[in-house]
Structures are given as structure tokens and as C-alpha cells.
């Protein structure tokens, strides 16, 4: 079981939920559960080739999954998954 932290720009796709729980032994499995509950998320996060899109960073327990095993990154019970897209805001 992992807890996903959904960033503000994607919250319209999770009924404005900030934290969403999803079971799974790997990130990929937990994401499948997340997409089942919130189907519009899939296209925003996953490329047509089935990998994470390059402008979305995903951190499992504070480590970028690209430096671990990508979608195969194992999840512990209680792992926290942070989804982090680029944010533009600053001066305006």
C-alpha cells in the first residue's frame, strides 16, 4: 500500500484529493490501481510507450524512481509517492 501525493495541477483529475492510497508491490502496480480510480491521470503521467512521461517526476520515499527501477521500483507498506510536475509560477 502506498500513499500518492497528487500535485495541485493534477488534482482536478482526482476529485481534488491531495492524498490517494493504492495497493501494490511496485510503483507500476500501485499506479494501475490509481488509474483505475482516476482514469484521466494515466494520459497525463504515462507515455504511449508505457513509461513515465519526461515532465513528470515521481519520487518513492524521496528518491526519484528514474534513479531506482522506474515503474518496477518496489514499494514498502506505507511508502509515500510524490508526483512532481514542473511549476512555472514566480513573479507575475
Amino acid at each position: 500500500m502506498a500513499t500518492f501525493r497528487i500535485p495541485p495541477v493534477l488534482r482536478p483529475l482526482t476529485d481534488d484529493q491531495v492524498k490517494v492510497e493504492s495497493p501494490g508491490a511496485t510503483l507500476g502496480e500501485a499506479l494501475e490501481g490509481l488509474f483505475e480510480a482516476h482514469p484521466a491521470l494515466r494520459e497525463r503521467m504515462i507515455d504511449t510507450d508505457g513509461t513515465l512521461r519526461r515532465f513528470v517526476n515521481v519520487y518513492v520515499d524521496e528518491e526519484d524512481v528514474r534513479t531506482r527501477d522506474g515503474l518496477e521500483t518496489p514499494l514498502e507498506s506505507g511508502s509515500s509517492v510524490i508526483v512532481l510536475p514542473a511549476m512555472a509560477g514566480g513573479a507575475a
Binding site: 515532465f55 514542473a86 509560477g89
Partner: peptide
């Protein structure tokens, strides 16, 4: 290294579009 590619514009709204709590900056 962090963002090799930019997101599509609709996924990176500015504060003018999305708003921001005044104290946050």
C-alpha cells in the same frame, strides 16, 4: 536534469491563471 522536457502549457499554469496565496511567495 530535473525536467528534461517541459510539460504541455495546460499542465503548467501560471499564478495569473491558477492563483497563489499571497504569503506563499
Amino acid at each position: 536534469c530535473l525536467y528534461p522536457e517541459p510539460p504541455p502549457p495546460e499542465l503548467a499554469p501560471s499564478c495569473a491563471e491558477g492563483g497563489v496565496l499571497g504569503v506563499l511567495p
